[in-house]
Amino acid sequence: MKAVVLHAAGDIRIEERPEPPAPGRGEVRLRVTRAGLCGTDVSEYTAGPMMTPLKTRHPNSGVLGPVVLGHEFIGVVDSGGESFAVGDRVAAGAGVWCENCSWCRRGQTNLCESYWTYGLSADGGLTQQITVPEAMLHPIAPHVADDNAALAQPVAVGLHAVDRSRVRPGDVVVVHGAGAIGSFVIAGLKAAGAGVIIAVDIDDGRLETAAKLGADVTVDASSTDPLEVVRELTGSALADVTVEASGVPDGLSRVQRLTRRGGTVLLVGLPKGEVSFTANDLILREIDVMTTVAHVCDQNLPAALALLAERDLASLLVERVVPLDRVVEDAFMPLAGGTARGKFLVNPRELS
């Protein structure tokens, strides 16, 4: 079978790989029908290894690369399984947890002490078949198209972020950075009943998409100070929740000035440099600073699939579906070059 294999930064190859092993107890083998690409995949391609174990064996998965990428994937059950039948369509959470450590017992499976991820810590879903644990799979509703269902994992990440933000119905929320993860957070905030969602970015296309996803107000920060917009909407109260999803080094300082006394700042984007902020202001105005990573599979993945059963997010977010053997030229290169305008999906069953 063919797979998309990362060997080093700038070195991705379409290779023949052996078929995955027959499923053992608690496992199923999937025929992958769609896989999504995200910023992490692109970072591994342009500057890796950052998360993939290409030089050092991963301590939890035990894998030493090269690595098949792809941590956003769906498929059809091909064999094995106790909870699913052959032919069932399922979405994968990609993360693997132990169920026994103190974090798992608290329900924080995304923080499991032995957590690892298909497509980053071990061979993932940018291939034609894969054997995975049943525990990380959830069923896809029959009427949900593959392109839409393929967004389940990143939507789950967005929903976990919304949970961590502690947003309440009616809250005024600012999302700073309306790129990939920011878009999924906006969709989650809309579903959670946020009062007014303000999307801030410097890209007109992203802001247009944000409005379609549910942002009530969009702000081009290259020409307008977001603080002026927030004050106009709230008076001196400012925003109840601010979400920093851009990853810029001064992102925290940018959003804290938009946050009301007693409000919440949620950090989503991963900065590449040191983060700057004014601690005294956070303390004296008693602003909570929260963080978020990945998702809690059993909670957030079913919620994501339920949201996708109600909304066709693919029509708003997916730019193109590419064949497996064209993924470098038609997906990784435009994403790395900054010319992509939306989400890229891969159809492993299609070859050019």
Rank of each mutant, 00 (worst) to 15 (best):
G269C: 05
L213N: 05
V162I: 11
I202Y: 07
R166N: 13
G262A: 04
V173C: 01
D250G: 02
R257D: 03
V268R: 10
V229K: 03
L270Y: 06
P249K: 05
D204F: 06
V230Y: 09
T234R: 05
A194T: 00
L267E: 03
G251T: 05
K190R: 15
V172D: 04
L213Y: 03
G179L: 12
A237H: 11
S165F: 14
G193M: 10
R206P: 06
G263P: 01
V167E: 01
L189M: 02
G188I: 03
T259P: 00
A215C: 01
I186G: 10
R206T: 04
R231L: 06
G214R: 12
A211C: 03
L238Y: 03
T234W: 14
D163W: 13
L270E: 06
T264V: 15
S253R: 05
V265E: 13
K272G: 14
G214C: 02
G170Q: 13
K272Q: 07
D220Q: 08
Q256R: 09
V200Q: 02
R206D: 04
A180C: 05
S246G: 13
A180K: 05
L252S: 14
D240T: 05
R166C: 14
E232Y: 01
V255L: 11
G262I: 02
A211R: 15
L189V: 01
G247T: 08
P271V: 15
R260W: 09
S165T: 09
L270Q: 13
I202C: 02
G193L: 04
V230F: 00
I197A: 08
K272F: 00
D203R: 05
G177K: 08
R261C: 15
V167S: 01
R261W: 15
G205C: 00
A180M: 11
A192Q: 14
A180N: 08
